[in-house]
Every structure is written in structure tokens, then in C-alpha cells.
Design a protein around this nucleic acid. Structure first.
Lengths: 240, 240
DNA sequence: AGCACCGTGTCACACGGTTGTCATAATTTC
DNA sequence: GAAATTATGACAACCGTGTGACACGGTGCT
């Protein structure tokens, strides 16, 4: 599992994190850590440029300094929460004083979490990940059954009339895609996009190999004929 | 997690109840009764906003209307059950027709109870309390037995066909979680959230070590194969 | 206090499974 | 038969997991 990026339905997205901090040294430190962890770091040093960044890039999370030159972080947080377009963006407050009152105020103003300076990079990243984890949209993965096969994403099991079928991760995703998109031909490129993800560059012929491996796993149950080759076009999952 | 979940502690602070209902009048009525009874009422009028609420507030119980504009309540219920993060949330179905078939379908789709409109507030609250009573004490203090293992939270003991099994606190909680959530794959992140808690920051690979320690403790009884590795996904407690 | 002990989290390393790629054989199409 | 396309077998690199060791903090004991 890539700890650095939020995974959703097989597609890897790189979360964008906006750092709103006026002290350059701290901003630099934050940006470094954030990028080190594999996120995209956006930066703003005051409220106007923060809004600009939010409008242009719609970040997935905002690290917001408590103390800012013009507008305080709390005000920004409240404004973010007031706008329908931004009220869903999670906020982590950065505060210098380990004051308990700051914590209360920060949370009341709509922050999802807060962290006091100085902070360890590990803790910061952990909190970021925790907050992001809570905000990843829930995509229900339902059990699928087709052509006598039963696939259960939650238990990560595949069965075919009693036979238990062992699959590697890639073959599992491949079969899952086929079972949720039956009776239709998919080119190798389409399969790569859907199963491997768009950002991965893999040889087209690799699909052949995984098709073969999937068939081999299905063969003991006599269900390998479900995966059909359509010459010149690609592959198809068909019950007939 | 800052929004203190009403579970976990075993003590019901204030259960959050999500009302999914498109008719404003009925939603209002429900909310009023729920709040009157001392619960926190969340509201959603369609499937998307319901998911939003679930994601943000993780309610302790869901009142789900049978008939909804876009996605039917049954579909939502099934999706809730399919997701590891939501499968434990109890559901009470609201149905207008006193039809017996609805009841069957509703229960099959994973609802814990159902109630037909019109209903008396007293009956509704009684059912809510009954369902909550059954569901809150999942983690705390209930003896569990699965796969030939017996776990008793009150005495903090684990036995496997005569063998007494010694576990450290963390391994105990880990096993308890697995035994109350069998046959389902959990990622390291999910296990950290569920067993360690969301505000604890621990390396993901630490889970491996505790899995190993748990297996080592189970090995003398020959039950270490109950904890299965699902490569690329996580771990699973399975009796098969 | 000093001590040993336990539980825990982290790391480094080893091992095996998985994966992508290629060369080659088999198959289909014209 | 030749060309195009796909199936197969083999292989090396990589990644994920298992494992042992160690450090740290807490607890109870002498």
C-alpha cells in the first residue's frame, strides 16, 4: 500500500495540500515534509493568496497557521466553512502556543485537527494522513456474481461452485473489473486504464500475460472459458 | 478523532442518529423525537448527502427511509453493509406500506429492524433503544467465540479447546476485533484505526509485528492459521 | 534508588510471491 | 504460405511480508 497517496477504486490520486504560513522557514519545512511524503505542496503566505490557491487548485487539505499577518487563521477557517464550495476541505491548524484555549477556538472555528509548533515531521504526516483518511469518499464495493463465479471484495475471496480460487492482487482486480463489466469487449489500453490506473505505464502485451494467469487460476474450476479473446479488439467476460 | 465517537468507551455519551428521509415533514418529526430522547440528530434527504454525513460524523444508528428519490433505501443499506467502515452501523428501515414483503426485503438487505409509517414516537424510540442496546456493546464485555477460540473480555482470558492462551493487551484487543469481525479483510490502516485508535500514530508495519505475536501465541493450540494474510490487502480472521 | 522484567514500536534483513518484459511457439486471417 | 495477432514459458527485478533483534518507557520488586 502506498502510504503516501490516497487510493480509491484502484486509481491512485495524489492529494494536494495547501500550506498557509507566513514564516518562510516554517513554510519551507512543511513543504519539504509534505512533498517527501508524496503529496503535492501548494503554498500561500497570506489570506488573499490562500484564496487564490484554493480557487485555482482546490486542495484536498489545508495546513493553516494560527497567526497570520492580516487575517487570522481562525477567520480563514470560518470563511472556508461558510462557503459551500470549500466547507468540505479538511483543515489542520498550526499553533505556536501549546495553549488549551487555542485548541478549543481552533476546533470551534471548524478545524479538523490541530498541531502545536514545534512538531515532529512524523506526527504532522500522521495527522495529515489520518484526516485525509477520514475524508476519502466512501465507495461501496459490493459482492459480484456472474457466470457462476462469486467475488467478494470485502473478504477478498473468489469462489466458483464450491471451488475456492486463489488470485494475485492484479488478477483479482482484473476479474473484478470484468465481472462488473460483462459482455463487453475491452481493448488492452482500456484494461490498463481501468485496472492498472491511468498513471501507470505498462507494456500493452502485459495484459495478455495477466489474462493468461487469470485463466490458469480459473481453469481448475472449468471456468476459464469465461474470459474470451476477441481477436484484433481485446478481451471480454462473457457467460455464453 | 476530535468528534468523540459515542462508542468505543462502552459508555453511551450521546448516540448520533442519522435520519435519511426526503419528506421534510417526516424528517422534522423524526428529528424532533430523536432529539427529545436525548440523541443527536443528523439529517440527509438523499443518498449522496447521507454518505457525506456518514463519512463526516459516523453515526451510531441510521433511520433509513424505504422510498427515496434517487437511490432506494435498500440499495443504501446494502452498500453500507458492504463497506468495512460502515457495516457495523445498525439500520432501522422506515416503510410506508405495512407490506410483509417489504419487511422481508428490508431485513434481507441488512436492516436490523423496521418500522411502518405511521408510527408512534414511543414505538420508534423503543426500537431505537433496543437496536442501540444490541449494537453498542460489540466491543465491550461480551464473550466471543469463533473458530474454536473463546474470548472473554471481563476475565481477559482466551482459551482454545482446553489450551489457555496468554496475550498481551494489544494482541488481546487485536484478536477481539478479529473475532467480532470475521471473514473480512482489513488493511493495516483500518486495523490501526480500529484497534489502536485514530489518534495514535504508529507505523503501518507495526501491525505485522503484532500479527506475528498473535500468531505465535495461537500456534501452540494449532490455531495460528485463523489469522490469514491477504497479500496486498491486509489480514483476515477466517475459520476456513 | 537501582534492578529486572514486560509490553511496545521500530528497524534491518531475508525470503518468497508477484509483476512486467521478452523470446518463441501457436493460432488466426488473408 | 505469409503476415498479423495472440498464447505460452521463462526470467529478473521488484515489492510485500515474515522474522529476529533492539531500544525505549513503564512497573513492580528488592
Amino acid at each position: 500500500m502506498l502510504a503516501t497517496s490516497s487510493r480509491n477504486l484502484g486509481v491512485i490520486v495524489q492529494a494536494k495540500i495547501l500550506i498557509v504560513e507566513d514564516e518562510p522557514a516554517i513554510a519551507e519545512l512543511l513543504a519539504f515534509n509534505v512533498m517527501q511524503a508524496g503529496f503535492i505542496a501548494l503554498r500561500a503566505e497570506d489570506a488573499p493568496s490562500a484564496w487564490q490557491q484554493i480557487r485555482d487548485h482546490s486542495p484536498d487539505l489545508i495546513l493553516l497557521d494560527w497567526m497570520l499577518p492580516e487575517t487570522s487563521g481562525v477567520v480563514i477557517a470560518k470563511q472556508l466553512r461558510a462557503d459551500a464550495r470549500t466547507c468540505d476541505i479538511p483543515i489542520i491548524m498550526l499553533t505556536a502556543r501549546g495553549d488549551e484555549r487555542d485548541k478549543i477556538l481552533g476546533l470551534e472555528s471548524g478545524a479538523d485537527d490541530y498541531i502545536t509548533k514545534p512538531f515532529s515531521p512524523r506526527e504532522l504526516m500522521a495527522r495529515i494522513r489520518a484526516v485525509l483518511r477520514r475524508h476519502i469518499p466512501i465507495m461501496p464495493d459490493e459482492n459480484v456474481s456472474a457466470g457462476g463465479l462469486e467475488l467478494s471484495p470485502v473478504t477478498h475471496r473468489v469462489t466458483a461452485k464450491g471451488h475456492s480460487i486463489e488470485l494475485g492482487p492484479t488478477e483479482f482486480r482484473l476479474l473484478q473489473f470484468f465481472m462488473t463489466h460483462t459482455e463487453r469487449v475491452y481493448s488492452r489500453t482500456q484494461l490498463l486504464d481501468q485496472v492498472w490506473g491511468t498513471q501507470v505505464f505498462v507494456e500493452e502485451r502485459t495484459v495478455d500475460v495477466h489474462i493468461r494467469r487469470l485463466r490458469a487460476a480459473l481453469e481448475p474450476a472449468g471456468m476459464d472459458n469465461l474470459i474470451q479473446t476477441v481477436r484484433g479488439s481485446g478481451y471480454r467476460f462473457s457467460t455464453t
